[in-house]
Design a protein around this nucleic acid. Sequence first.
DNA 1: GCGGGTAGACAGACCTGTCTTTCTTTCCAG
DNA 2: CTGGAAAGAAAGACAGGTCTGTCTACCCGC
Lengths: 210, 210
Amino acid sequence: MTLRIEADGRAATGAPAVVRLDPRERILTAAYALFSRRGIRDVGVDELIRESGVAKATFYRHFPSKDDLALAFLERRDHVWTTGYVVAEAMRRADTAEQRLLAVFDVFDEWFQREDFEACSFVNVLLEMGAGHPLGQACVDYLGRIRNQLRRWGDEAGLADTEAFANSWHLLMKGAIILAAEGDRQAASRARTMAGWLLEAHRPRPEAAG
Amino acid sequence: MTLRIEADGRAATGAPAVVRLDPRERILTAAYALFSRRGIRDVGVDELIRESGVAKATFYRHFPSKDDLALAFLERRDHVWTTGYVVAEAMRRADTAEQRLLAVFDVFDEWFQREDFEACSFVNVLLEMGAGHPLGQACVDYLGRIRNQLRRWGDEAGLADTEAFANSWHLLMKGAIILAAEGDRQAASRARTMAGWLLEAHRPRPEAAG
DNA sequence: GCGGGTAGACAGACCTGTCTTTCTTTCCAG
DNA sequence: CTGGAAAGAAAGACAGGTCTGTCTACCCGC
C-alpha cells in the first residue's frame, strides 16, 4: 500500500529507476514548498507544473483551478504543520496539558531559528486574500481549529474560562510569529513569559468560596 | 499654504466649483484608500487612475513606478495612522507615559469595532511582499518606528529593560490586530489585560537592593 | 509657446485555463 | 501470455484576459 519515496517526489538526475510519486502528490509537494514561502498570488501555474514536473493538462485534471490546489495546500498545511509539527512536538515534549501549552512556545523558538522560517501560512493567506475570499475563509477555519486545540488543553488542565483563554493564548502565538517575521529571534521566549502570566490568571483559585 | 479640501479629493457630482486637489494628492488619496484595504498586488494602476481621476501619463509623471507609489503610501500610512491616529489619540486620552501605553489598546478597541477595519498595512504588506522586497523592508522600518515610540514611552515611565519591553508590547499589539482580523471583537481588551502584567513586570522594584 | 494635464491606444509580459497531439501504462478478454 | 482498448500523462500551442509601463495626440492656462 505505502510506497517509499524521495522527499521531493522526483527522481534524481541520472537515477532512472527511482520511484516517482504519482502526479497529484508531486503537485501538492511543489505547491506546499512554493505557497508556504511565497503566498498564493506570487506563484503561477506554470511555475507549479515546472517544479512538479507535470503536464498542464494533468495539473488541471487533478485540480480544476488554482484555488482548488490552494485549498488542498491549506488542508495539508493543517495536517503537516499544525497537527504534525506543533501539536505533535508539544505532546512529545511534555506530559501534562499545561506543560504542553507552554511547550508550544519552545517549538516556536526552534522554528523561528530556521533560516527558511516562513511565518504562518494561515495568517499570510488570510491577509493576502482577505476574509471575504474563500481561501481567506478557509484560513479563518484552520486558525479556529488551532484555538480549539488550545481550548481542549485548557480544559484538560482544569483552567477557568477556556474560551477566552484560548483566544488570548492564540494572540500570543500569532504576535510572536509576526515579531519573528520581522527578525526578532527572541519572540518565542517573550511570548512564553506572558503566557505564564496568562496561565496563572486562568488557574482556578483553590480556595474557591462556595 | 494649506487648502481646505474634500476628504476624497474629488468634486462631488454636479458640484462644478469644488476645489480639486492637485493630481499627486488625488493619486495618493486613492492609493491610501485602496492599498490599505486590499493590499498592493490586488490594486492595479488602471484602477488607481480611474479612482483618482487622473491620466495615466500624469500618474507616471509623479510616480515612476507603482512601487514608488506604494512606498509613498506606506510613508503616508505612518504619518496618518501611526502618528496621526494611534499615537495622537493615546496622548490625547492620557497624561502619563504609562497611561498612554495602555491607552493604545483603548484606541485599538475603538478601531477594531469599525466595519472597515483593515488591519495593519505594515504587517499586511510585509507578509504580502516578503521581507526581501523593498516594500517589505520599508514595512520593517516603519514597524521599528512604532517600537521606538513604545520604548520612548517606556523610558519616560521609568520602566526597566525598555528594549525588551517595547518588543513584547508590540507583540501584543500585533497579536491583537491579527485576532481582530479573524473577527474577535474583544481582541483589544484581551491584549490590554496582558499588557498590564507586562507593565508590572517591567516596573523597577522600589526596594532595589544596592 | 510650453509645461502639465487628459484621454486612450499600444507593446510586451504574464496569468489562468483549454485543447491537441503523442506517448506510456494498465488492464482485461481471449 | 498476448492484443488491443482505454485511461492517464507529457509537451506545448493557444485563447482571452490583465498587468505595468510607454507613447501619441490634443487641450488649456500661464
